[in-house]
């Protein structure tokens, strides 16, 4: 029974991983990764890691993947552009590399002579991997790692906000400049203005400096009136 579930979840997990790599549309890749994560949570359950499986489903498949879906929807899940220089050679090299890496890892793991690899695992107490046990370890033995992880999360959240925010200052400046340009009388800054043939009624101080739009706006209503 346990073997049946192992092969079921393992096949789903590997198929999901292959789907992430091969599907062209990023949105389908994200959905495939969600499928992969659920199967992986099943594998964790088979390994008696209840709390980690739960966290995997809630945090990964829930929160992180929602973030991904939002960003894919925002950026636009376009298919990738094809460059002239990438042919089948790059993909071939990549898959050969992956296959060699897999063989090497398998050889390294199975040839490592770890005695426990062939067994069904050590014995465990009934509460193994339960939230209580994990929480106790996390708040006693691994307290420093816990705190460091929380600081890291805070820094990452602040960093993401700083990176992705709208540049407020720049946009305001652009809008104000375009507004004053719109309000300027016709011919400002041209040769006609210098010669004095633009319009005899309008004698404005030329608002040439775009860095001072405020003074420009103040002089506009008084100077713009015809005598």
């Amino acid at each position: 029974m346990s073997q049946f579930f192992f092969f079921l979840t393992a096949i789903i997990a590997v198929a999901g991983a292959i789907g992430v790599v091969t599907l062209r549309n990023p949105f389908y890749s994200v959905l495939s990764l969600v499928c992969h994560l659920f199967a992986l949570a099943g594998l964790f359950l088979l390994l008696q890691a209840e709390f980690v499986a739960f966290a995997q489903v809630v945090v990964y498949a829930g929160a992180v993947m929602v973030l991904y879906v939002f960003v894919v929807g925002y950026v636009g899940g376009d298919d990738e552009t094809v460059h002239p220089w990438d042919g089948p050679a790059q993909k071939g090299i990549a898959f050969v590399f992956a296959g060699m890496l897999f063989l090497e890892l398998c050889l390294a793991i199975l040839g490592s002579g770890l005695k426990a690899l062939d067994t069904r695992g050590a014995g465990f107490v009934p509460g193994f991997g339960s939230p209580g046990d994990i929480g106790e370890l996390l708040l006693t033995k691994f307290l420093f790692a816990f705190e460091a992880a929380s600081v890291l999360l805070l820094v990452a959240a602040v960093g993401a906000v700083v990176l992705a925010r709208r540049r407020g200052g720049i946009h305001d400046e652009e809008q104000r400049l375009s507004f004053t340009e719109f309000m300027r009388p016709i011919g400002t800054g041209t040769t006609a203005e210098g010669v004095g043939t633009r319009d005899a009624g309008i004698n404005l101080p030329a608002p040439a400096a775009p860095a001072a739009p405020r003074s420009d706006r103040e002089t506009l209503p008084t100077g713009g009136e015809r005598p």
Binding site: A13, V14, A17, I18, V20, V21, H36, Q90, K91, I93, A94, F95, F97, A98, G99, L101, F102, L105, C106, I109
Partner: peptide
């Protein structure tokens, strides 16, 4: 190991 290699191939391609 298999999932790791698939991920690595994806990062490359």
């Amino acid at each position: 190991a298999m999932i790791f290699c698939i991920g690595g191939a994806g990062v490359i391609t």
